[in-house]
Computed example of a mutant assay.
Amino acid sequence: MTDVRDAPKVSEAERLRRWRLVLGGGDADGTGGELSGDDVRIDAAMAAVYDHDQVRSTGRGAGRSGGLGRSAPRVARWLGDIRTYFPKPVVQVMQRDAIERLDLRQLLLEPELLESIEPDIHLVTLLVELNHLLPDETRATARQVIARVLADLEDRLTDRTRSAVRGALARANRSRRPRPGDIDWLRTVHVNLRHYQPRLGTVIPERLIGFGRRQRSLAKEVVIAVDQSGSMADSVVYASLFGAVLAQLPSLQTRLVAFDTSITDLTPVLHDPVDVLFGVQLGGGTDIAEALGYCRQLITRPNDTVLVLISDLFEGGNAELMRARVARLVRSGVTVLCLLALSDEGAPVHDRQAAADLVELGATVMSCTPDQFPAVLSDALEGD
């Protein structure tokens, strides 16, 4: 740990400057400092968002000048300023705060403004939410913005997902009664070491392990059912991306279903995750039982199927029927994996009693980040 005494010393003038930027109060801030040069524009950029609540509640400013109003040119200039003076992660936070605090959603319907925003997953979820309001010219720009974010996520997650799934399928498909030429002697010896015969100086294998043989038929089925209520927005984005990645693997049959109180089967558009996202409608109620009933109709080989239910489990429909359908799926041999969230935000608010009930029924219930998902799915595919 670095000793604070070893930290570089800051001059009194620089210390007052930093406090002045934090407080933003002019004479009222107590620093007595004046801003000049780029600091004036930095201060105005922060004031446009973070002084808004005080101005609204007191009717007077806090000493800063700024404000975005509902002017697209003014917002565009502000976007340029924050990209000039702040690093990318800070820019994304300030954009998100501006949209939420100043209610600028209507301005996002303008393609020129949308092009100038630094895209991130939160902007993607907002565009998906506004999908039905987007005019045609903005929709084309929105697709490009979403595609950029998904491409970055794909670079981060695709190779890891493919590798984890292929490894799991290879392990799951190893033959327990291999032909002589297909015996994996290293693994066979390892699992039979307890049968070593000192008198003979050898291992007498009780069980033979074979190399996985390449199968022409599909090895596993994956059905992803994602809750598209508003609280699951990030999960919908990641589920769409992973669904598209898994659909490219020839050894898997992948289906993606989005649901609220109705059901949308997005499997036909899995080749393009942008199309998938434009096919969902965030918000609305939740009927998990109905979604499970639909998914059950899709399953042809229960023992070779993983059902990934992504939901906070707040059931707006028949909770008893939801539990009954999970129990029936588990009894039939389906591996039921319930993810309370598939996002970077950590464990969400969820129905704890419903989660405990599903665990008792034999489902696996957990929260999961996108980076963890390949390993989690791998374990589910491999089974016992």
Results as ranks from 00 to 15, higher is better:
Val330Cys: 09
Gly69His: 04
Pro178Phe: 01
Glu137Cys: 03
Leu153Asn: 09
Gly24His: 09
Asp304Asn: 08
Arg18His: 14
Arg60Val: 15
Ile224Gly: 02
Pro178Thr: 03
Phe314Arg: 09
Pro268Leu: 15
Arg207Ser: 11
Asn318Lys: 10
Glu315Ile: 11
Leu133Arg: 13
Asp304Glu: 14
Arg18Cys: 14
Asp97His: 10
Pro178Ser: 03
Gly316Lys: 09
Asp43His: 12
Ile146Asp: 13
Glu110Val: 06
Pro268Asn: 14
Leu109Ser: 03
Leu79Trp: 07
Leu109Phe: 01
Ser262Gly: 07
Gly30Ile: 09
Val330Thr: 13
Leu186Val: 11
Gly26Asp: 11
Ala142Gln: 06
Arg352Trp: 03
Ala219Arg: 07
Gly63His: 04
Gly32Asn: 07
Val149His: 10
Ile204Pro: 00
Gly167Tyr: 01
Val280Gly: 11
Glu34Val: 12
Leu256Trp: 04
Gly59Tyr: 08
Phe373Trp: 03
Ser229Glu: 05
Arg214Asp: 12
Gly279Ala: 11
Gly333Tyr: 01
Asp29Ser: 14
Pro205Glu: 09
Leu68Gly: 08
Ala291Phe: 06
Ala45Lys: 10
Ile117Leu: 13
Asp371Phe: 01
Thr202Arg: 14
Ala48Asp: 09
Glu360Gly: 12
Gly283Ile: 09
Arg20His: 08
Pro180Gly: 04
Gly293Gln: 07
Arg41Ser: 11
Asp312His: 09
Asp27Gln: 14
Pro374Lys: 12
Gln92Glu: 10
Val165Cys: 06
Ser235Ile: 06
Glu14Cys: 05
Arg325Gly: 06
Pro135Asp: 13
His132Gln: 09
Val91Leu: 13
Ile209Val: 13
Leu68Lys: 08
Phe211Arg: 11
Ala233Asp: 02
Leu342Gln: 02
Leu358Met: 13
Gln281Leu: 11
Asp27Lys: 15
Arg174Phe: 01
Ala291Cys: 14
Thr261Trp: 01
Ala363Val: 07
Val276Gly: 10
Leu377Ser: 04
Ala225Val: 14
Val49Leu: 12
Val308Ala: 05
Leu298Tyr: 06
Leu246Lys: 12
Gln248Tyr: 01
Asp39Tyr: 13
Ala289Met: 09
Val189Cys: 02
Ala219Gln: 05
Thr305Trp: 02
Arg105Gln: 15
Arg15Thr: 15
Ala341Met: 00
Asp3Gln: 11
Ser11Arg: 13
Glu115Leu: 07
Glu345Asp: 04
Ala327Glu: 04
Ile288Gln: 03
Asp351Phe: 00
Leu339Asn: 05
Tyr238Glu: 06
Arg41Val: 13
Glu100Gln: 12
Ala219Thr: 08
Pro348Gln: 12
Gln353Asp: 10
Ile209Thr: 05
